[in-house]
């Protein structure tokens, strides 16, 4: 990726004016999603382009709703019909016998997976405690309280998570370990990582202790390395990599946009980016809602803005700051 500013400005202009070729559009999308500052820069130029060229505000696309429209126009063939079609093509008896043999193997595999499911291996629920589990492939799971992990594809290592869990994945390049959680997909590349996707929370957190994971949202992709944290903000559909590997990237991590977000989520995201930590004096404050933008301000300014916006006050404590008060309680 060329980082020359003139080149990027030209690329943005080409993209916005509809002149960008496919590879250039991909290059710009990759540059835009690399970090929050790039994202903000492109958005601002786009806004300027829209007002100067009298174009309406970009429409928000709902991928799920759009796919429903696609589904009404396509036919998904039942597997039995596909099998019959293939059988018609077989010209010789030995091919038919081979097909029967393959079918037999398929039945055996199907029975294996059905029995596997009956043994209760397809859904893991921790209930009120912590559940530790080792899978057949050697992968180790630790599910925190009130967490559910569901196998969504019996032939692949594809899971759906609701809650908080840590995964020590045995990597297999031909069968990647994939987790769907709160609007994103997380794919391991030989890893120990934790995913926190609490139902009702505005953010999903992915923290990598060892190795590398790739995280996908509907529109962005990030790669997280050891000791990095990725956060997906559901309300804005933004996927952010809070890199802690390079000190010169710290400013990049400190651009936040909170829109009607729970204070708990906002504080968690801010805490991931600053050495000083913000704590809440009263747990009820976690539910206060906040709408505010931060663009790399020092933590002293952030705590002051948070307090003023919510009608709270704050104390300096050894670990950072403590917000207190009751004005914002629902």
């Amino acid at each position: 990726m060329t980082e020359d500013k003139t080149y990027i400005d030209e690329l943005i202009a080409k993209y916005l004016t509809g002149e960008a070729l496919p590879d250039e559009a991909i290059e710009l999308e990759d540059w835009r999603s690399a970090n929050a500052i790039n994202h903000d820069y492109v958005s601002k130029v786009e806004q300027a382009y829209r007002i100067t060229h009298m174009l309406p505000k970009a429409k928000e696309v709902d991928p799920y709703e759009l796919f429903e429209k696609v589904k009404t126009q396509i036919t998904v063939p039942p597997k039995q019909n596909a099998l019959v079609t293939h059988l018609r093509d077989y010209a010789t008896l030995w091919r038919v016998l081979a097909a029967v043999f393959v079918l037999g193997l398929g039945v055996i595999f199907a029975l294996y997976f059905i029995l596997d499911a009956k043994k209760g291996l397809s859904v893991y629920e921790s209930g009120n405690g912590v559940l530790k589990q080792k899978l057949a492939d050697g992968t180790q799971l630790e599910l925190m309280a009130n967490t559910k992990l569901e196998l969504v594809d019996s032939k692949k290592r594809r899971f759906r998570l609701s809650g908080e869990a840590t995964f020590y994945v045995v990597h297999n390049a031909s069968d990647p370990f994939v987790i769907e959680a709160g609007g994103i997909q997380i794919k391991d590349i030989g890893t120990l990582f934790t995913v926190k996707a609490i139902e009702g929370n505005d953010s999903v957190h992915v923290k990598v202790a060892e190795g590398i994971v790739q995280v996908y949202s509907a529109s962005d992709t990030i790669e997280l390395h050891q000791h990095q944290i990725g956060v997906f903000i559901r309300s804005t559909q933004r996927l952010i990599n809070f890199s802690k590997r390079k000190t010169n990237e710290k400013k990049i991590e400190r651009v936040f946009h909170f829109s009607n977000s729970a204070l708990k989520e906002a504080v968690e995201i801010i805490n991931a980016a600053y050495p000083e930590k913000i704590t809440l004096a009263d747990r009820r404050l976690e539910k206060c809602l906040i709408t505010v933008d931060f663009n790399g301000q020092p933590i002293e300014e952030i705590i002051s803005i948070l307090a003023e916006t919510l009608g709270l006050s704050y104390d300096k404590i050894p670990s950072g700051y403590r917000l207190k008060g009751t004005a914002c309680l629902p």
């Binding site: 993209y15 916005l16 004016t17 509809g18 960008a20 496919p22 559009a25 999308e29 970009a58 429409k59 696309v61 991928p63 799920y64 759009l66 796919f67 696609v70 997909q185 996908y216 509907a218 529109s219």
Partner: peptide, 16 residues
């Protein structure tokens, strides 16, 4: 579809 649809619509919108 879910992975690419948003950016593809965005790209199509720049042209159309």
């Amino acid at each position: 579809f879910q992975m690419y649809c948003k950016e593809l619509v965005r790209y199509a919108n720049t042209i159309l």
